[in-house]
Simulated assay, not measured.
Amino acid sequence: MRILFIGDIVGSVGRAAVKKVLPALKTKYNPHIIIANGENSAAGRGITATIAKELFDAGVHGITMGNHTWDNRDIFEWIDDEQRIVRPANYAPEAPGRGAAIIKANGKTLAIINIQGRTFLPPIDCPFRTADALIEEMSSKTNQILVDFHAEATSEKIAMGWHLDGRASLVVGTHTHVQTNDDRILPQGTAYLTDVGMVGPRDGVLGMERTAVLHKFLTQLPTRFVVDEGDWHFHAVLVDTDDATGKATSIQKIRQTEETLMFF
């Protein structure tokens, strides 16, 4: 199976970039299943039903979320009915939605799991024990398993990669919006990348307008952050897996900008 995972999509700029880049990626790489992190897709905070449909219509098969899952309150009205979106599984059991899902496309089946870290983020349930339980559940349905670990600390993400080595096909980190350079296949066959990066404004700060962010750092005063405009960059990761074993056979980072897209 060939899996394309797209990093955190930020605002309308990020959504526009997905619609521009994805057709070229599909032509060049022919992925079977495309997953994207969408927790920042609505003006940098959360997602709406309309935006989810926009991403699905663009060719995304499944959407993972993160700590901004609940920022648009209308999500409570529809997330239970949308089987292709997963939010962090280690929220309280009363939280709506689901933390894992089965995605089927192009004759392939992929389990997607969303987990949120606890270091420098709210103290929710243990991500490692939650991942254990869901890996066991999903492995009875398919040996192709993707885990999006939405976490702040690189140490926590790396630890999760080792914890799930040999039990997941792919463990990717999201949330910090900067693509890391540590893509590898771990010894037991799990493809790993600490952070996939983001899709959205290139000249802001993690997608936010930089003047406001600088003001916050310089003054420590309350500041309203808004998604930046202008040129975008696009980060993703492409992973091939063995259909028989679910083990990864290759991993490749993808990085595009508006300037490089014309030569793609």
Rank of each mutant, 00 (worst) to 15 (best):
M1I: 02
I3A: 09
L4M: 04
V10E: 07
V21Y: 01
V21D: 04
L25M: 09
N30I: 09
P31I: 05
I33G: 07
S41M: 06
G46W: 00
G46A: 07
A49P: 03
A52I: 14
A58P: 10
G62K: 02
I63M: 10
M65R: 05
M65A: 15
G66S: 08
G66T: 06
W78P: 11
W78D: 14
R84D: 12
V86Y: 00
V86E: 08
R87E: 08
A89G: 15
N90Q: 08
R98A: 14
A100I: 02
A101G: 06
A101H: 00
G107V: 14
A111T: 01
N114C: 12
Q116T: 07
G117H: 03
L121R: 03
P122G: 11
C126H: 02
P127I: 08
F128D: 14
A131Y: 00
D132P: 03
D132N: 13
I135M: 11
I135W: 00
M138T: 09
M138E: 12
M138S: 10
S140G: 08
K141T: 07
Q144A: 15
L146N: 14
L146I: 09
L146Q: 11
D148P: 05
F149S: 15
F149M: 11
D165S: 12
G166K: 05
H175G: 14
H175K: 04
D183H: 11
R184W: 04
R184I: 13
P187G: 15
T190P: 07
T194H: 04
D195S: 09
G197I: 08
V205L: 02
G207D: 04
G207E: 02
L214T: 12
L218Q: 05
T219E: 01
F225I: 01
E229Q: 10
D231K: 09
H233P: 07
F234Q: 09
T245I: 04
G246W: 00
A248D: 11
T249H: 05
Q256Y: 02
E259T: 14
E259F: 02
T260C: 09
M262I: 14
F263N: 15
F263Q: 14
